[in-house]
Nucleic acid binder design. Structure first.
Length: 194
DNA sequence: ACCGTGATCCGT
DNA sequence: CGGATCACGGTA
């Protein structure tokens, strides 16, 4: 199966997010080849999207998001979990799609949980070494999967971005409705002002 | 509900 | 420099 080309990613984040559902995320490292089917994603649209890290502007961390499409954007959060994104859209646009859950396909212990952005990075072996890596490389790429019909796609607000005001309510989280490997809904109330 | 854990960013 | 914050997950 042929890798998704870098041009696949060079489109608005929401389009890429939609088309990422059902694709196969391949991580091939020293510890072997691991593959997961993408079943849940979130689109982060760019600098104007207040939930997007790029809304902080061009910083050392967000630089990769402003670069060419088809790179990995991996960051550490809460000091212990990694999150894996694909950089999308035109160069100069700070957009990306967060992969929030996959289904185990290959190289994973049966029954191992692959839902949740931090967990999927842990089980696939994704870490900061993958940050900025091209998504057409042997060690890290995506493959086309069986097409996911529109009726199977569910949409809702993104998780954990309550700080983003009106942007938090936008239905930019997409998942395969019947997957069974979609992350548990974690609702964080906006922190109450003291 | 609560907290671990460290990078990142911003204000001083 | 300090301190707040964080696109989370495990335990309670």
């Amino acid at each position: 199966m042929r890798k998704l080309p870098l041009t696949f990613y060079a489109r608005p984040a929401l389009e890429v997010a939609r088309d990422l559902l059902g694709t196969l995320l391949v991580v091939d490292g020293v510890s072997g080849r691991r593959v997961g089917r993408v079943v849940e994603v979130e689109a982060y649209l760019g600098e104007h999207d207040l939930a997007c890290h790029a809304s902080k502007g061009l910083t050392p961390r967000t630089e990769v998001m402003f670069g060419p499409a088809g790179r990995a954007y991996v960051y550490l959060i809460y000091g212990m979990h990694h999150c894996f994104n694909v950089v999308t859209d035109a160069e100069g646009v700070g957009a990306a799609v967060l992969v929030r859950a996959v289904e185990p396909v290959e190289g994973l212990s049966p029954g191992e949980r692959t839902d949740g952005p931090g967990r999927l990075c842990r089980v696939l072996g994704l870490n900061l070494n993958h940050n900025r890596q091209r998504l057409d490389s042997e060690g890290l790429h995506l493959l086309p999967g069986a097409p996911v019909p529109e009726a199977a796609v569910a949409r809702g607000p993104r998780i954990g971005v309550e700080y983003a005001g009106a942007w938090a309510a936008e239905p930019f989280r997409l998942w395969i409705r019947d997957s069974g490997h979609v992350s548990r809904f974690v609702s964080r109330a906006p922190r109450r002002r003291p």
